[in-house]
Design a protein around this nucleic acid. Sequence first.
DNA 1: TTGTAGGCGTTATCAT
DNA 2: ATGATAACGCCTACAA
Lengths: 352, 352
Amino acid sequence: MRDGQIALQGVQVNRKKDSAPTINDVARLSGVSKKTVSRVINRSPLLNQATRERVEAVIADLGYVPNPQARALALRRNFLIGLIHDNPNAQMVLNFQEGVLDAIRETEFALVVRPVDRHSPRLLDDVRNFLERQRLYGVLLLPPISENDALAALCTELGCNYVRMGSAKLDDDAHLVESNDRQAVTHAMAYLAELGHRRVGLVAGPEGFRSARERMLGYHDGVAHHGFDTGQDLIAGGNYTFESGLAAGVRLLDANPRPTAIFASNDEMAAGVLHAARQRGIDVPRDLSIVGFDDTAIAAHIWPPLTTVRWPIVPMARAAAAKLIGPGEEASQPSLFLSDLIRRASSVPPSR
Amino acid sequence: MRDGQIALQGVQVNRKKDSAPTINDVARLSGVSKKTVSRVINRSPLLNQATRERVEAVIADLGYVPNPQARALALRRNFLIGLIHDNPNAQMVLNFQEGVLDAIRETEFALVVRPVDRHSPRLLDDVRNFLERQRLYGVLLLPPISENDALAALCTELGCNYVRMGSAKLDDDAHLVESNDRQAVTHAMAYLAELGHRRVGLVAGPEGFRSARERMLGYHDGVAHHGFDTGQDLIAGGNYTFESGLAAGVRLLDANPRPTAIFASNDEMAAGVLHAARQRGIDVPRDLSIVGFDDTAIAAHIWPPLTTVRWPIVPMARAAAAKLIGPGEEASQPSLFLSDLIRRASSVPPSR
DNA sequence: TTGTAGGCGTTATCAT
DNA sequence: ATGATAACGCCTACAA
């Protein structure tokens, strides 16, 4: 006969030893019903203090851990948070994971990762499949796919809570953690102005990326505010890759007159610009200052170390996770995070 | 009265519309028992073809997806694979995740990530807690914590399957996917010998890391085989960080005579050596060749692009995941992966 | 080949 | 404040 049933008859006292203890074992050994144990686990307020302590003692003694699958089944929701991303960049994804883990440490939540391909025609089906299968508690969307409104709509349709990371007002406060890329770039431009630059080039990010747009707007704000030179030969497009930065760098550096400084919309492209300068014998920073964005690992490890904008991704991730799992009122507060300009050797006053 | 019970009475035909369809809905609408539906889901061989097709049609029609929590409860194991790592390096972790995702795509498995702190005294408790809570199907252990035998023992104790990634024979074939770091470094040394180098420095990895030891052994093999110069001023220790590589580079480059080439046990340290050379006005590659290990993103993006050893992490990850979830016979086959030397501009014949 | 009864470990409902 | 009973959605054992 089964263990649990024996227990109900009050005959057997020792539990089976060959599998993890269950709520029944705890109930039997502490002489209460399983519902009471359940109340202890879930910190129900209406519980006799003595009862609670007795049960807790048994739990500790047994090393009992509630089975999350059973919980998930009964509660009709699990404790998994999904992280959906399209690998914008390894360091960023990992930092984000770290922040989320910070937030869910000591909770029963776990983090499930799901890289996707934003160019796949099956993107939405992929995500739908994932969400339907796993029935996640909620998902976190990283840029750039966080900018995809269809994805957010899909989450809503499937009854899956979500929080998006974005560099602009993509959604309402309950579903968004925001950075201020535009303003951050404007600050960087002000810094270049202080150094004495008046002719600053831009390597823009790919079209369709909100972050790229915001950073470009920040550039234009700066150009206008400080009266920098303007012109199409000061602007080149890129797609956030090293190679595109290299190509853009070549274009900008072949212009005449050459810019004395270049702002690249991310660090990888900035590294590409640096290569382009090297290939042309242009000394950085003496003949060309470079400023990047993101402060990824590469920024501090190339030569010269790169001046760049650092956005607080770990705190942002923590906030996003908290927004997802936290109580309602807190979750609907706006979350805006400010970025810092990290000044390194790649930017100096212009030599000409 | 509940939907399922009504169904058993054969009275109601339409299912409730406000929640996902269950196995009961499918059973009712296709006029078979839940068990038969269950057999369809689980591809039982003993099923009438016609029955199967009828049920499958209903499943498709309803958009039915089995509830993984209920499955997990009944099967007493879930379909989550854990990835436990101590962030050896962002690109590596992400590549690994990608490989695992490759392997579990189109399956019902999902990937749960769990970064840990290998220096924490609570490491084992942390992992124990995680495994007990989540009751994972199995876990993947990345270096360097994959080298921790106590962790593997813990998995065994908790009845959790595991696969370790390692640069040496850390475990039996069912629990190990192996790379050949030692041999890979020996190849790199042979390449330097071909170029004409005879005085090659080593930036070693941190003690206690198996990979560091294997790479060092490969260095010594190469030195012995090719009759390179030896001496303590040709060897410096590092801890796999950029900064430690910088410090080690300073030490090695202050030696007299200077090495004409340096092998750094990973790319980050190689980048540090490069910085050290720059600071001293030593031209790379003309006056100093540098070889790294890992082929992380930084390798191709610094100047000059770094010659390095690339180990096939994505295929290894795929193999590790397959080993975890695959059938027994296949899983107990040995898995050894070979690394390639990627030749880039940082290595040339010596100028002296 | 298919169905019935009951269990997996938890929580919800509604008593007491 | 506590307990009995019935879900939650799936699977296994055994029966037919």
